[in-house]
Design a protein around this nucleic acid. Structure first.
Lengths: 120, 120, 120, 120
DNA sequence: GTGGTCTAGACCACC
DNA sequence: GTGGTCTAGACCACA
């Protein structure tokens, strides 16, 4: 999956999201070693410092941790990953319903719209 | 509906969105006169400069227009409003599907999740 | 209180500690506005980016929060500050006892040593 | 006593501290022969290089010395060990008072807190 | 003027 | 080679 970084939102935030996706879709598995900061930076086409910030911010979620001289690793805690997945999905759905609600749609109407969109 | 402005996104953008919602949900009807900048600013609890910027940016969409001395008015053009509604809805749905796709969900699965959410 | 930054530990960590001390000793009171990043950086004699990192890391504790265009503020939550004070004290004492324990001292002996130190 | 090495401070430093503790608490007695680098490394669960560095750094304190072919030995000099003990204790106490002072506590208050902690 | 972000480039300790 | 830290300097959106 390419990195596709826009400039409409902070790059380091997009990097974090990208990593989250990679983790919950299994690109990186529990216990895996991440590429080095420099390699990831090169791959994403950003400054190493930006990647460093993204990774270091991301660390606070507990999904990755760094071992000072040997690299960064995905957590072994399967539950944490499942929670992340669930949480990301929930956020999406709730955000979606909140916004559609603001636009005046009921649950039933939303289902219809979603079904129509899939049929297309 | 309260204004509920966060600081995580530009305030003037949130104001514009709020006004759009008010228009398509009929709080303001075609031809209505908007409150003065000062009143709106007070109501929203923001700096009048910010409200001014929001309104003047918003004008470029054609949904409101200002008459030199008498104030700002909602457009009479019903089609514009319908278009707005459709466009806002489309954006929501496409964004939603794009994000859920990234999370690895197929159309069918998305429908299921949406139905489950409605049942709750 | 001067900043007294050593190079034996990350500067941004020392800055955070300094700010914590300032908060719990009342140099900054709940609700106070902090000086700007640039001013603090100049005062501490560090690069503005370093100060920025310190402040932004510090924010995760909830003791300060930033309002994007008007500055950074100390939390109004008195309890949080009391908790901080208590937590800092506890850490100190427990660390102290842990280390003295490793060195083979009992509680009674530690008390004696502390009293002797105060008398000096 | 287990080694309990964190990654928040250099491992070789923690190893040195651990050895110091072992010496002043009598785990190793004056004149004792230390296990081989390899054995110590295995016991501590670290890379032999790291243990090697720790030991060789530690030698400069005079508390251990290596005899070319027969291994490393604890010094016979009892005074050195007493000095070490005193120095470690002093460092602990002074550090403790310095930090508590920063937190705004007087000597008397510190004594009270210490007594309370012992009672628990 | 405010906080925030990004780049570039250097240096460090550690293993 | 690894992560981490720091400086310097530039730019941006926002109010």
């Amino acid at each position: 999956m390419p990195w596709n970084l826009n400039s409409d939102r902070p790059i380091f935030v997009q990097i974090i999201e990208h990593l989250q996706i990679d983790i919950i879709t299994g690109v990186y598995k529990p216990g895996d070693k991440l590429p080095s900061v420099r390699d990831l930076a090169a791959e994403a086409g950003v400054n190493p410092n930006t990647m460093q910030k993204a990774l270091s911010d991301f660390e606070s979620t507990g999904l990755v941790h760094s071992e000072r001289t040997s690299g960064r690793f995905i957590t072994n805690d399967d539950n944490l990953i499942k929670e992340l997945r669930k949480s990301l999905v929930d956020v999406q759905i709730e955000e979606f319903f909140k916004n559609m609600g603001k636009l005046g749609f009921t649950g039933k109407e939303i289902i219809q719209l979603v079904e129509q969109h899939v049929e297309k």
